[in-house]
Design a protein around this nucleic acid. Structure first.
Lengths: 129, 129
DNA sequence: CCTTGACCTTCCAGTGTCTGGAAGGTGGAG
DNA sequence: CTCCACCTTCCAGACACTGGAAGGTCAAGG
């Protein structure tokens, strides 16, 4: 099948599939006589795998590692779990950081009357620290 | 003062100060005879303002708007509050998304025994959706 | 057979926010 | 005069795409 259909079936855009090929995340696709890339079920499955991993926030580098483990029938599940847990921890750190920022901003916005007058605790805080 | 000292006092690296100048976030610095950029208290204050806003997660574009409001003594505090509240909402959306991902991943990692054996629910889930 | 339009190809450039590094000039201390 | 820290500009890279230009391919309709 052409790249467009592979895109539809996998959820990865044609543009992004080509990009993944260019950076070596996926092997170069076979070509038809026309020069068009040709995909089969295996390739689409791999793209779906990538799509799901990316939507869980794994970096392309993580995905590359996960793909290698996926292909390696003798892999240790511990290796996969380690990648996943490291990612969970990164997410948790990010959530803590965002919540802290959110708290600060909510505090500031509550103290700002938010009307036509110029005095604004938000700007004051940013200015004076 | 030289850019290095302005960097130390403001918390924005020299490299980043030059970058901010290049994209027009801050006006071009005055120059000494040597060609070195020259900063005073006003510039350092502006850089500190930028630094604090950035560390609260405002985009450079947001900061540009906040700077304009900061300089505008007749601004409406409502304008500032609107930017801040929009940012709070974006943060909240992000936190919800991250927590959902975290939940999925924790569920998967709990089901993965994580040892030397090859069977792994994480990869299975990524593969089959 | 020809046109049309949807699809495909490659390549270049831009997004946002810096960061690193190379090549070379300046300033002050010893 | 040498040395070293600092400054300058410019180019490239990081992440993960996304957009667009210029042009080739394919199938359907007239």
């Amino acid at each position: 099948m052409n790249i467009g259909e592979a895109a539809k079936l996998s959820g990865v855009s044609a543009k992004t599939i080509r990009y993944y090929e260019s950076i070596g995340l996926i092997p170069p696709a076979g070509r038809k006589e026309s020069g068009y890339r040709d995909y089969g079920r295996t390739e689409v499955e791999m793209l779906r795998f990538i799509h799901r991993a990316r939507s869980l926030g794994f970096s392309v580098e993580d995905v590359s590692g996960l793909l290698a483990l996926w292909r390696d029938r003798s892999r240790a599940s511990g290796d996969v779990k380690a990648i996943a847990l490291a990612h969970v921890e990164a997410i948790e750190r990010k959530v803590v950081e965002l919540n802290s920022i959110r708290k600060t901003l909510l505090d500031l916005t509550c103290r700002c009357h938010g009307d036509d007058r110029p005095d604004c605790p938000i700007l004051e805080e940013l200015a004076t620290g």
